[in-house]
Nucleic acid binder design. Structure first.
Lengths: 110, 110
DNA sequence: TCCTTTCATCGTAATTTTACGATAAAGAGT
DNA sequence: ACTCTTTATCGTAAAATTACGATGAAAGGA
């Protein structure tokens, strides 16, 4: 679905956006991850409290611990946040590299 | 959930991101809308073929017409695209104003 | 007026997501 | 070894999303 195609507008082979499948998947995953009110709220909290632990988020949000953990996993796998182990706890931070990548590619494409 | 709160990190009233509820809802809706492979593909097509009609997208994608129409509605309501009527057909374009807004606020917040 | 074209909407089945309690795992301290 | 703290994972019920065919609505031409 990512190669050059013909369409009714051009009536000949024509352009498509220059993004490889892997990057696109990654990008869509990032969009999807922040397309949830709860996860967006978590992200907001992490931006203003970088390095905080999961428990802080659980305290802050009216959401069960298991749910927060699940959402953090989604944000991690999407690349929005990165977690480092600190004893039994886990510190989370916005993943600035991936965030920069997101902004960059969004700027190119949209 | 958007006012100043106290948290375990600061142990006193502390900051939260400066975004009002309405903008946040709008932003989350935009994220969510592009967090779907099919909708992302539609958006890509619209960027490279601004002004095309629904039927062109239906031809391009291996998806039923009803489904495309539904996805276009989501993209419209999120503000990614704008549609203008042209006879029985409907022309769609990327909504550059809202896209600019998205980029701007993402740059501020993340 | 009657077609034709184009698109949106309705109803619905299948899939995915979300949220929760319960439980497991992993590290630090005693 | 035992316990406490912290987080992840499992199982599951409820809700939301997705995709489709069928139908309806709106505009233009014969």
């Amino acid at each position: 679905m990512n190669e050059t195609i013909a369409c009714a507008i051009c009536s000949e082979a024509c352009c498509t956006l220059d993004i490889d499948g892997e990057s696109q998947e990654r990008l869509v995953r990032m969009f999807k991850a922040l397309g949830s009110p709860v996860r967006f709220e978590i992200m907001k909290f992490l931006v203003t409290h970088p390095g905080c632990i999961t428990g802080d988020i659980v305290e802050y949000l009216p959401v069960a611990q298991a749910t927060v953990s699940q959402h953090l996993k989604v944000l991690r796998e999407a690349g929005w946040v990165a977690g480092t182990t600190d004893g039994p706890a886990r510190c989370y931070c916005p993943d600035s590299e991936n965030i920069a990548w997101f902004r960059e590619i969004v700027g190119e494409i949209l």
